[in-house]
Amino acid sequence: MYFDNAEGPVFRPPSEADSLILRVTIGCSHNACTYCNMYRSVSFRMRPQEEIDAQLQQAQRYAAHIHRVFLGDGNALVLPMERLLAILAQIHALLPKVRRVSCYAGPKDMLRKTPEELISLRQAGLKLVYYGMESGDDAVLAHVNKGVTAAESIEAGQRIVAAGIKLSMMVILGLGGQEASARHARNTALAVSAIRPHMLSALTLMMYRGSELLEEFESGRFPILSPAGIMEELHLLLQDIELPPEHHCLFRSNHISNYINFAGTLPKDKERLLSESLAAKDKLALLKNWDPYNNVER
């Protein structure tokens, strides 16, 4: 559900399909990751209160049917605390049926919030944060200009979990290319193990027009993984993730970018997922006509 005519594209996680999309910012405050072109067409701005009021006033007509709200765009936690708390209070006052508010969050914005501030946001109704960590490897993060180190990425995720906010984390298979594949997988697994997210999604690298990483690929400076190579990287990632037996992490690799879908719960289903990823690797190794441009936006 969406009540807005502001500039720029609108993105939301697949699981927020039935949510009210409340755009509290436009674009992404970082907007410099070399693999991403989601918000390249717009200039980042924090929206004035009257624009947020207008969205909520329209949504209020459907208040009885709105149970979830997703705060857009790319990283709502960039807003100052007083504004976030006021928006959360406004949502619950005008839309009393809302049970969950969620948002995307960038690691730098997560780190700017103190542990106490994050707890306050959870108490005010922020129940779920979607975090594109992408990699736990310093060199890969630097190469794609994520803006943080692996240690900072881990601390950002840990702060969300420690505050009692559910964390849905995304990583990108193939982001290190051929050269860094094994290191990317192992260090990302170490980061996942340290953070202990509630949900983990493994996407496959897609390259988009207007992104610097596509330019690297087309100039021959970034050889990408074959489908079988992606499965090998997934196997390494799963193999090295170590979570306590009592932990319950929903794992999904079913994004439109993925060659083969996987689903399970970690650590309970780890051995099954390892077996399935090996079988998928063998199956995809038989492909005779794989075109690297299948991974490129047409």
Rank of each mutant, 00 (worst) to 15 (best):
G220S: 02
G220Q: 07
G220F: 10
R221E: 13
R221L: 14
F222S: 01
F222N: 04
F222V: 04
I224S: 01
I224A: 09
L225C: 13
L225R: 12
S226N: 08
P227D: 06
P227A: 07
G229C: 12
G229R: 13
I230R: 03
I230Y: 07
M231C: 07
M231Y: 03
E232L: 10
E232W: 11
E232T: 03
E233S: 06
L234T: 00
H235K: 09
H235R: 14
L236E: 00
L237H: 03
L237W: 07
L237E: 02
L238V: 01
L238A: 04
D240I: 03
D240G: 02
I241M: 09
I241S: 04
I241R: 06
E242A: 05
L243D: 00
P244R: 07
E246I: 06
E246D: 11
H247V: 00
H247A: 10
H248L: 05
H248K: 07
C249L: 12
C249V: 11
C249P: 01
L250R: 05
R252N: 10
S253H: 02
N254Q: 03
N254T: 00
H255K: 05
H255Q: 08
I256M: 04
S257L: 07
S257M: 08
N258L: 06
N258R: 05
Y259D: 11
Y259V: 11
N261M: 07
F262H: 13
F262T: 04
F262C: 03
F262V: 05
F262S: 03
A263H: 14
G264F: 08
G264N: 05
T265L: 04
L266A: 11
L266V: 03
K268V: 02
K268W: 10
K268G: 01
K270C: 06
K270M: 09
K270F: 13
E271R: 15
E271N: 14
R272V: 04
L273E: 05
L274T: 00
S275Q: 13
E276L: 15
E276A: 15
S277C: 06
L278S: 05
L278M: 13
L278R: 15
L278F: 13
A279F: 08
A280S: 14
A280G: 09
A280W: 14
A280T: 08
K281E: 11
K281I: 02
D282S: 15
D282C: 08
D282H: 14
K283Y: 15
K283D: 10
K283W: 15
L284I: 08
L284R: 09
L284V: 13
L284A: 13
A285R: 15
A285G: 04
A285H: 13
A285T: 06
L286H: 03
L286E: 12
L287P: 01
L287E: 07
K288W: 08
K288C: 11
K288S: 14
W290E: 14
D291E: 10
D291Q: 08
D291C: 10
P292T: 12
N294W: 15
N294H: 10
N295T: 06
V296F: 12
E297V: 00
E297H: 07
